[in-house]
């Protein structure tokens, strides 16, 4: 497989058992392949299933059928069929994900929150912290905040901690769910640079960018999720 991600014939429907078994079809027969160094922007109105697709690739959501092949080291793994330990290993080494909100862990200082994924890959804690500090500085989180837990940070600051936490590791695959949603112009610019650097080193990216300027700056092509809308 020359692609980093290969989604084939994916089908996802949510069934809400607590609400009378309501069935919400999201997409059907969806296929998408992403090459190294490529950034694909998921496009379409809200509710089209962009986040659902992104979360399915991360194996956070469980589609009903289809396959999502991920190049993991020198192997190709269907993340939908992988054992939990293997999914965790893929997330640790191969695939990073920036969600819209930081899930705050109480009491852990920002620098440790950011360094943690890198330490999980086996990098020494001092080295990981240095890299974390450098990224936080680059994203303009003042040094006075580095040792504080992000629970009390502003929305924009939390989002930047979240971005730093993902970009601290050079993942071969990056999934970005509105990474610039609550950022000011300068920080948006920095995120565009980070994405550019990831592409330059050969990472495959899939993202949702509501900001036209950001999308035009980073995306190589658009992918319209709505095209694959499942029949209700």
């Amino acid at each position: 497989m020359t692609h980093m991600i290969e989604v084939t014939e994916l089908h996802k429907t949510f069934t809400l058992h607590t609400q009378g078994g309501t069935s919400i079809p999201v997409f059907d027969q969806l296929s998408l392949a992403v090459a190294p160094g490529e950034c694909v922007a998921l496009y379409g109105p809200s509710g089209a299933g962009k986040s659902t697709l992104l979360r399915s690739i991360y194996a956070n959501y469980r589609p009903q059928s289809g396959a999502i092949l991920i190049r993991h080291g020198d192997r190709t793994v269907d993340i939908l069929a992988a054992a939990p330990r293997e999914v965790l290993d893929i997330r640790r080494h191969t695939m990073g994900y920036v969600s819209q909100f930081l899930r705050v862990i109480p009491r852990i200082p920002a620098v440790d929150v950011v360094a943690d994924p890198l330490i999980q890959t086996g990098v020494a804690s001092e080295v990981a912290k240095e890299r974390a500090v450098a990224l936080l500085e680059r994203l303009r989180i003042p040094a006075s905040l580095h040792q504080l837990a992000p629970a009390t940070f502003s929305g924009g600051e939390q989002q930047r901690v979240n971005i730093a936490r993902c970009f601290v590791v050079d993942y071969p695959i990056l999934l970005l769910d509105e990474p610039t949603a609550s950022l000011d112009a300068r920080n948006r610019e920095t995120v565009i640079e980070l994405i550019g650097e990831a592409k330059a080193r050969g990472a495959a990216l899939v993202g949702i960018f509501h900001d036209d300027e950001v999308r035009e700056a980073v995306a190589d092509r658009l992918f319209e999720v709505e095209t694959y809308q499942a029949a209700a």
């Binding site: 194996a59 956070n60 959501y61």
Partner: peptide, 8 residues
């Protein structure tokens, strides 16, 4: 996985 079961 914990996040799968809780989120979906």
């Amino acid at each position: 996985l914990t996040d799968q079961v809780l989120d979906d």
